[in-house]
Amino acid sequence: MTTEPVDDRPPAAGPSTNLIAAVVVIALGGAAVAGAAALGSGPGTWPMIVGVALVLLGLILALQARRAEPPERFTRSSLLVVAAVASMIAYVAVIATIGFEIPTALLAFVWLRFLGRESLRTSIAVSLGIVVVFYALFVGALDVTIPHLF
């Protein structure tokens, strides 16, 4: 795992959260088993094996849930993550229609200004800089067929 100093981590969630993770794993394994069964014996054999393994591992995780290291809780800062993901989804949604230049600039701006609390000038400057560099690199130098407006 990564080297985060202890003191700044978000508070630990209750041990039941481990259980939730375990249940998710079991559910995933179950879905895999179901899907594999539908595929039949040739293509479905291997997914079946893996699915069964997942269910078993999930069960073990559930048994260990109480004693294991609890996962971190979601705090208010987690909303930042939600915002970040939303911005990225928006990016994907529009990029095919209006090219990558504008969404790139906007995404960069949002991240710099709102998620990163940078000053307005820095945010604008860096956003525009990124678009320029990307354009020069991807469209100019590499000739990648990314949807672009200009």
Partner: peptide
Amino acid sequence: RAAVLAPITVLITLVGAYTVNNSV
């Protein structure tokens, strides 16, 4: 600064992902 590096990394990642198969 991380706050500046993050969006750059994100955008490199997003655009880079596109270039693999030219697929959104």
